[in-house]
């Protein structure tokens, strides 16, 4: 049995369920296996999948930010350990 705290901790990760969206965008082939409507002469099959790359990237980025916010809202001990290993502001910063 999971304790209440464990359930709350798991709930913290709900935004990750959104990561199913990129898969859903391309999973059903008959949906995008068509030529019309074309965009600047590019068949639907091609421009839709190129657009799906951008949508997928936006979903992953959104999950990243939601995840981090949830991370900061969580208990202090967790946050401290996150910052120690995870802040990327150590020597070199972004590089």
């Amino acid at each position: 049995m999971r304790t209440k705290e464990q359930r709350a901790a798991a709930w913290r990760y709900w935004p990750r369920l959104l990561l199913i969206i990129p898969f859903a965008l391309v999973a059903w082939v008959p949906f995008y296996n068509r030529i019309e409507p074309t965009l600047w002469g590019i068949p639907f099959f091609y421009w839709y999948q190129l657009a799906a790359i951008i949508l997928g990237a936006m979903v992953v980025m959104g999950v990243y930010f939601l995840d981090r916010r949830a991370g900061f809202a969580a208990d202090g001990a967790d946050r401290r350990s996150e910052q120690e290993t995870d802040d990327g502001t150590g020597p070199g910063g972004a590089l």
């Binding site: 990561l19 965008l25 999948q49 990243y64």
Partner: peptide, 13 residues
């Protein structure tokens, strides 16, 4: 293209 769409959620998780 769908391949590269799917790799990043996997990388993230």
């Amino acid at each position: 293209v769908p391949y590269t769409i799917m790799i990043y959620p996997i990388l993230f998780l």
